[in-house]
Simulated assay, not measured.
Amino acid sequence: MNTETAGHDPIRLIVKRQEGPNAKPHWEEFSVAHQPHMNVVSALMEIRKNPVNAQGKPTTPVVWESVCLEEVCGACTMIINGTPRQACSALIDDLRQPIRLEPLTKFPLVRDLKVDRTLLFDALKKTHAWIDIDGPFDLGPGPRMSARTQSWAYELSRCMTCGCCFEACPNTGHANQFLGPAAISQVRLFNAHPTGKLNKQERLRSIMGADGITSCGNAQNCVRVCPKDIPLTTSIAQMNRDTTVQSIRNVFGSDA
């Protein structure tokens, strides 16, 4: 017996299983030997190596998604004990057992704990969440930003499109086309960039429709679950002001 695991009870995980989008969901319990410094991903990897449930019956390995394993990519986001978060940074010893794992509910299910987060990336496309740079030639030094702007812009740039804010928001879902807090915050980020300002009106207009900023109910769940502590509600408030000004300019035909 490994002396490091001696004295520890086995880890209990209850996983919501579903073979596909149209299959019937069910819960399955697993028991995994405790190891020091385990996270949820490592526990799922143990199940994959030996796919046997807590009743001792062979089963299929649990399907989930992960890439960076250091809370940067957002791929391993799932609902852990009722809260959307990343499995790679969820340490087993910090979690209440049995640990309940579920897929995000606001995105199309692929299988088990894996979902399709295309909705988030489509929102970034709609809001032009990038800086246009034309040509392969050297553009020289980039435009300068003040230290104050750099400070809060860096906070917004840490978004990894994980889906936690989208999952926690009561105004998102299959029947509601709300773009979500992350996309709106990225509009603020790129509109603050000296080059990004060239597309400021386009971005503001992209969030002025029925699926845009007016669909936010100010529940503020997004800031509570954001793993990067991004001030999402501050961004939404600023974009509320900017879209109001833009709507007035639209009425009077001003391009300023």
Rank of each mutant, 00 (worst) to 15 (best):
R48G: 05
V67D: 13
F190Y: 03
V67R: 13
K197P: 01
W27P: 03
M239F: 00
T105D: 10
A33G: 14
G253D: 13
S31C: 15
C222G: 02
C216Q: 00
T77M: 06
C164R: 03
L179Y: 05
R17P: 00
V115Y: 00
L95W: 04
K228D: 03
S157E: 14
R48P: 01
S151R: 10
A33T: 15
E46M: 14
H174T: 05
S151M: 10
P84C: 02
M239N: 02
H8N: 14
P143R: 10
P194L: 12
T83K: 13
G140C: 15
Q246F: 01
T172C: 07
I207F: 03
D93N: 11
A6F: 08
D229L: 11
H128Q: 15
G20H: 07
L198K: 09
T83C: 06
V110G: 05
W130H: 09
H37S: 14
Q186K: 09
E102N: 11
N240C: 05
A43L: 09
G142P: 01
H26F: 15
P136C: 11
A168C: 06
F107K: 00
T195R: 13
G253F: 06
A23R: 12
N53M: 08
L189F: 04
N22I: 09
A168P: 00
A192H: 07
A6Q: 08
C73Q: 14
E46F: 08
M160A: 14
P10N: 06
F137W: 12
H174V: 12
T59N: 06
V225C: 09
D94W: 08
N199V: 04
E102I: 05
T77E: 10
G209T: 14
N2P: 11
P58W: 11
G212S: 03
E71F: 01
P25C: 05
K16N: 12
I230L: 14
D229N: 12
R100C: 05
Q220C: 07
V41Q: 01
P58V: 09
D138V: 10
N81K: 08
A192K: 02
G180E: 02
L204C: 01
L109K: 02
Q150H: 11
A43V: 14
K16W: 07
R144W: 10
A6K: 13
V187R: 02
L113S: 08
L104C: 08
D242L: 13
P143L: 15
Q97N: 08
R144M: 12
V187Q: 00
R100A: 05
Q201N: 15
R188F: 03
A6D: 12
P84S: 03
Q246I: 09
P36T: 06
V72W: 03
Q238L: 13
A256F: 08
T233H: 09
T234M: 13
D116R: 11
A23S: 14
I131Q: 04
R203Y: 02
T244G: 10
V62M: 04
N22D: 10
A183I: 06
L204Y: 02
T195S: 09
K126D: 11
G82P: 00
N2A: 07
T127H: 04
F137C: 13
V115D: 03
L124D: 03
P143Q: 15
D211Y: 04
L204R: 02
A90V: 05
E46V: 10
H37C: 12
G7Y: 03
E4K: 07
V251I: 15
T127F: 04
L156C: 10
L204M: 03
R148I: 14
R241L: 12
C226E: 00
L13Y: 00
